[in-house]
Nucleic acid binder design. Structure first.
Lengths: 333, 333
DNA sequence: CTAAATTGCACAATCGTTTGTGCAAAACTA
DNA sequence: TAGTTTTGCACAAACGATTGTGCAATTTAG
């Protein structure tokens, strides 16, 4: 069913039909009687305009490309959910790409999305390269979670430094001195900021000597192996700070396997919160990221960019959720 | 950069350029020299054809619509990941819709996707209505997870009956007699089949009297409240069978709150497996669904339908993963 | 009653591709 | 050399919508 067929049925021109259906009847002085007829027939025949043709003509697709490193990571799944919901509210649909944390797939995805003429791009980049997100990208781009400093690519993310500083301070206040940090993908901004937050907190409390950083990516396996490695060291830490939810899972697995009791023998705190954290034994103390906020703000920002407005990057504050995986250590006198 | 500009640059017709770029040079006898020039220039100017125009002309978008009830549920997130990966391999992109388990949103999404002329639809339906998936849908549709019996809508799903039967039998073999089942959304096929599997196992072991079914949807809150309600009954069950991962989480939360020890006082088994199940204390015995298989088979099926082939629905077998949340009960003599 | 203004709609171009067909020029045949 | 075949490419019409503009018919103004 095309607009032409609909017009033939009504015995009028496609022009008139189109104008009525796009609500421009007044602007073009279509009589109310005619308009009525058009709407009725359209309704009755259940006509829906071919969006492809529309997109071509209007040079606008009402489609946003969403590139995410791993949709099976609940952090990103939640982000995707919020983004999809917000975009739907505003009449856009989302073309989803999962880059599998592979920069090459990410670059290809950008190309694919651009050739499909998306109106904008929402990208949680792998974080290794940025050129493909800035050069020759004719549409607005907003970065999620990971970003690039000094690159003038707008982003929305958690204040990682703040969160890590808070988590580390919390452990220190509880009497911990030997706190190890198990990091995620090095070179990515959130990771670097979390590490810096951790280091700053340690330094500011005179614990520079005790700074211990292990790990190399955001996977459960990394958490698992780094923990085992840390436990094997002569001076085992009394607390672990896992820089994302998957790493934290790996930590728990290793600790469980080695029969370390949390929090009696070792405390654990995670950056990033998941619903099941409260069900673990012990329930897991965590830094909760404002995921919904990130999604909403990113979409808003994208719309402002599409309206040719200027935007400023945003860092949203995370929150500490106290549970049972952290125990105080008696102060040595 | 359009093909017209590219053609002007090369001082030839768009026809020729198009034919080279679509690899039809031989078919239309374009000289190798010309072809070479075209490819070089296209490369150099970094030309990518406007897919919208292409879609319109070819009456094909290479886009598949994926409708999912809740992308933040790890079960569906994993499904989405597999589907995206498989489709990408085959040159398609995915337009993602999250129906939030709301039939109305699902219906709207179908309309939106159809007007965008997707080549096919992959739908994990809410399960309440099916008309919008069959009537007037001009493209192939494959259902995921939930489906409709006797409706001739092809689907790929877990063999829920089999899985539930297995889980229940497992509990019975361990000596449990009072097993309660906490169900998900009633009226949806997986739920009904799981319930039936549970009931059959009970009946076949002479435990018809003990059949106890609680709950009403696939949420954590449902698991939580149903469990509390079950614990309040005069004869509390010795084992719980949660019909999905979120319900299981709710069960654990309630049991924890009420200080019920798993598995000493009560055993728990879940339909659907999640990575963190092994980290819970105790680790959670579960029926693992072949999620990757579902995604892959669904995509294959969709392609067969697009090739106008016939397909048969598929039920994939789940697997029991034994962990520590189920304990044997000493047989009463 | 005539001229001007308004009303109501249709023509045709356009968005950027792909493709059936046509037509010279080149190559071949006899 | 003249006729036929082959080679190499371009014209122009789609695909299905939107929209600037034009032009009758009707209404209003004077």
């Amino acid at each position: 069913m095309t607009i032409k067929e609909l017009a033939r049925e009504l015995e009028m021109s496609t022009t008139t039909v189109s104008r009525v259906l796009t609500g421009q009847e007044k602007k073009y002085r279509i009589s109310e009687k005619t308009a009525q007829r058009v709407r009725e027939m359209a309704n009755q025949l259940d006509f829906a305009p071919n969006q492809i043709a529309r997109n071509l003509r209007l040079q606008k697709t009402n489609t946003i490309g969403l590139i995410i490193p791993d949709i099976s990571n609940p952090f990103f799944a939640n982000l995707a959910r919020t983004v999809e919901e917000e975009l739907r509210r505003r009449g856009k649909m989302v073309l989803l790409c999962d880059s599998k944390d592979d920069t090459q797939i990410e670059e290809e995805s950008v190309q694919l999305l651009l050739s499909r003429k998306v109106d904008g791009l929402l990208v949680a980049p792998v974080g290794e390269k940025w050129e493909h997100l800035q050069k020759k990208v004719a549409v607005p781009v907003v970065l999620l979670d990971r970003y690039f400093e000094h690159k003038d690519l707008p982003y929305v993310t958690t204040d990682s430094f703040f969160g890590a500083y808070k988590a580390t301070s919390f452990l220190i206040e509880k009497g911990h001195r030997h706190i190890a940090c198990i990091q995620g993908l090095t070179g990515t901004t959130p990771n670097e900021h979390r590490v810096k937050g951790y280091e700053s907190a340690m330094q500011n409390h005179g614990l520079s000597q005790n700074i211990t950083i292990a790990g190399s990516d955001y996977s459960m396996i990394n958490g698992y192996e780094s923990t085992k490695e840390l436990l094997a060291r002569p001076e085992t830490p009394t607390a672990l700070f896992a820089l994302n939810n998957q790493i934290a899972m790996g930590c728990m697995k290793a600790l469980k396997e080695y029969d370390f009791s949390i929090p009696d023998e070792i405390s654990l705190i995670a950056f990033d919160e998941q619903p099941y954290f409260e069900l673990l034994s012990p329930s897991l103390t965590a830094i909760k990221q404002p995921m919904e906020g990130i999604g909403k703000v990113a979409v808003e920002m994208l719309f402002e960019l599409m309206d040719e407005k200027k935007v400023a990057p945003q860092m949203l504050k995370p929150m500490l959720i106290e549970r049972d995986s952290v125990a105080p250590i008696p102060q040595k006198s």
